[in-house]
Design a protein around this nucleic acid. Structure first.
Ligand SMILES: [Zn+2]
Ligand SMILES: [Zn+2]
Ligand SMILES: [Zn+2]
Ligand SMILES: [Zn+2]
Lengths: 167, 167
DNA sequence: CTGGAAATGTTACTTTATAACAATGCATTT
DNA sequence: AAATGCATTGTTATAAAGTAACATTTCCAG
């Protein structure tokens, strides 16, 4: 009842609890590996670990939650470590920061440079990335009307995902 | 060569340094006064003071900058005071929070409930609010395609304002 | 003038993020 | 293999942003 497959001009999918999430993770890590190899960037243990933790769910994750989850009883990981990994992952387009939540989410886009918009469910917390061409165009056009030169667009929509709407 | 007057579906204006800013402030305070009277809300000294400080420029202002500016050598104002004033002003639609900057900007919109988008100049820091109908519609449509029910939309565009683009 | 709610003051703390420098790891050259 | 050099991570400390809880004051209605 929830997801369509592919949508004109962009797609956004909510996954809910029951889905083959191992595939999502696999895809993300595979892409990271591939992309880093292409660019000669190093997907180190720490960076991969952070990426895995982020992909533990489709929700946005707080930096300090990552911090806690990375710290076992032996060793405690410090903020800069996490933030540096996040920085790396963001630079390479593997992770996005959701500004309205102060949190991070795995990039589910395929191509390199994309105008991502985020649908954020206020109920279940799931975040879905969508590449809405229409939105991008509308944004570009209206900004142009104001003589404004858009470099980076941030679109974060809070509301109810299909699953939670059908509660 | 910067501003047009009124634009189809919405407007956004950048002011630059030379303009009759007293009018902007006057308009904003007038509107606040009027609106609070209508609603029986109290525009207290502190709230008005914070609103004035925010309207000191068309840039987004950080809460702790307000804090500093409110604290004279005698008395130091504390965070809760500022955040409470900001809370009040936001609830009444007199001020917006710019999430991507952790900062606040005076609302230059006229009507009560509006879908505001923000154009943020990376050079001069000026922020312009725009009520882009096209963007709003595009957002609504594409979200609907994904079965998503939008409650709040956050659209913040970073780039170059007309003035700074013509540097 | 007085009782009570709204607003502000105050203290202390949480959350989020970064600066600066030290130690370590890893690859390439010698 | 040893030496070199840069990228990565560790460590300490602190900055920046925001909130909880309770005390005090203000202000208005009765
Ligand atoms: Zn999944
Ligand atoms: Zn949901
Ligand atoms: Zn002005
Ligand atoms: Zn500018």
């Amino acid at each position: 009842m929830a997801n369509r497959k592919t949508l004109s001009g962009g797609s956004a999918a909510f996954h809910g609890t029951r889905h083959a999430h191992a595939r999502c993770v696999g895809r993300a890590l595979g892409r990271a590996e591939e992309l880093c190899r292409q660019r000669g960037a190093r997907l180190t243990y720490m960076r991969r670990r952070v990426l895995e933790l982020i992909w533990d769910s489709h929700k946005a994750v707080k930096a300090y939650d990552l911090l806690d989850r990375l710290s076992d009883s032996e060793k405690s990981v410090r903020p800069p470590t996490v933030y540096r990994a996040l920085e790396f992952l963001m630079v390479h387009g593997l992770v996005h920061r959701v500004d309205s939540l102060n949190a991070f989410v795995g990039c589910s886009g395929s191509d390199e440079q994309h105008n991502a918009q985020f649908l954020i469910c206020q109920e279940c917390g799931e975040v879905s990335e969508m590449d809405g061409a229409m939105i991008g165009q509308a944004v570009a056009r209206q900004a142009a009307e104001a003589g404004f030169n858009v470099r980076r667009q941030m679109v974060e929509l809070h509301g109810e995902c299909p699953g939670c709407a059908a509660k």
